[in-house]
Design a protein around this nucleic acid. Sequence first.
DNA 1: ATGTTTTGTGTAGATTTTACGCAAATGTGT
DNA 2: ACACATTTGCGTAAAATCTACACAAAACAT
Lengths: 237, 237
Amino acid sequence: MTPDYIKTPEGYAYKYPRAAMTADAVIFGFDGYELQVLLIQRGIEPYKGRWAFPGGFMRMDETIEECAVRELHEETGLLSPYMQQLGIFSDVDRDPRGRIVTTAFYALVKMESVVGQDDAMDARWFPLSAVPALAFDHDHILRVALKRLREDLHFRPIGFELLPQKFSIPQLQRLYEALLEIHFDRRNFQKKMLATGILIELGEKDPTARHRAGTLYSFNKEQYDKMKHDGTLRLEF
Amino acid sequence: MTPDYIKTPEGYAYKYPRAAMTADAVIFGFDGYELQVLLIQRGIEPYKGRWAFPGGFMRMDETIEECAVRELHEETGLLSPYMQQLGIFSDVDRDPRGRIVTTAFYALVKMESVVGQDDAMDARWFPLSAVPALAFDHDHILRVALKRLREDLHFRPIGFELLPQKFSIPQLQRLYEALLEIHFDRRNFQKKMLATGILIELGEKDPTARHRAGTLYSFNKEQYDKMKHDGTLRLEF
DNA sequence: ATGTTTTGTGTAGATTTTACGCAAATGTGT
DNA sequence: ACACATTTGCGTAAAATCTACACAAAACAT
């Protein structure tokens, strides 16, 4: 097969002009009270000094998903988080460097898994209420990601990705309430959540509780997959 | 701003290699009995003679959405259908011509709006049960599109995009049953659908009915938008 | 006219959701 | 040690919704 490009002194030449492709990751975390976003401070122009999502250019030997995973690891140390395609953003003038099209991903991580980060990296968590003006069209991407996260939370068990391995139902409820900005009745939430059958009771107590400690649970992925497969699952929050 | 490319005798040269970008549209229609897909027969290699989704290369002065709309119009005559991003497909070897990344869209159209098509175009509707082996990774894209269509149908009023302006509730039910491959109780379906409040009764009868004709309705988009905005909407089918 | 198919409406019983009562567990202050 | 506030776990009655049908009217075929 002939290659689709010609190598010239000036670089890789194509018959028609091409856009460059990047992947960016909107990383969400939860600190127990508020939704958090992981941002990187840009060290070079354009938008030097501004905060942006971790991301970078796609190589010729990797898919856009592999690119997102690689850049995320390089820039934040994170490995294999829960990650989903969010969408492609291709406005002609979204990047001052030229025609650069990005695929945004949204990722959910347990904040505890990022604490031991290299201090040299300019990565920082921002609570959603204090996110600064971002580089490129990342403000727009963030709004789309938030909308998607809230929609998905209603009928996918993604809340567990943001909590520690072991969590209590009240913790889970605080997560839902913070993300969806609504209030659930404490007792009905517990009943409904346990009724899904995708929680494993651990018989331990939440050591961080200030008063009576809640029972700790973990997410039963096997049971979830099984119930999803044969359609007996009843989510919807 | 300096351009991000250099024009050479060989074409457009970039410092690093770049993938080409295309948009492809999975067009769904409904004939009253079965879900249909609009395909184009390829006239050139690769995959000459095989069927594929309409689509083509993105220009430097258009977004990927504009590209999808343009290619769709050029290849099928369709204008402004209901169209949504499906996802980006970037497997390294998905196209034998080289590194070509595609963004797939899924579109819903009223089949009546495509009937007067130019006969010279090699576009044809295929019932889902008779779709041939497709070019590139389009088989895979079709499976993803179907999954997405079925998910969306549960809580978005997209069924209306596939039916004529005026339709009866039994027609709508046949659509839901064909797409989701499940059976609804006729009387409960009617009640629930009317209870949403997003249908306008037209006071006319379905002229295509073979026995007692159903009452015709149209989709009340204003009411839908209003109810969606203030959260009083109750869909879920 | 009579039978068949299809649509429109109603209703009883089962199920689910909602709103809230109450007791147990745990930290705080005296 | 004891009263008190806060939080969790469980239960229950009433309201709302869903499910499974019954029945009659409309329209075509013979």
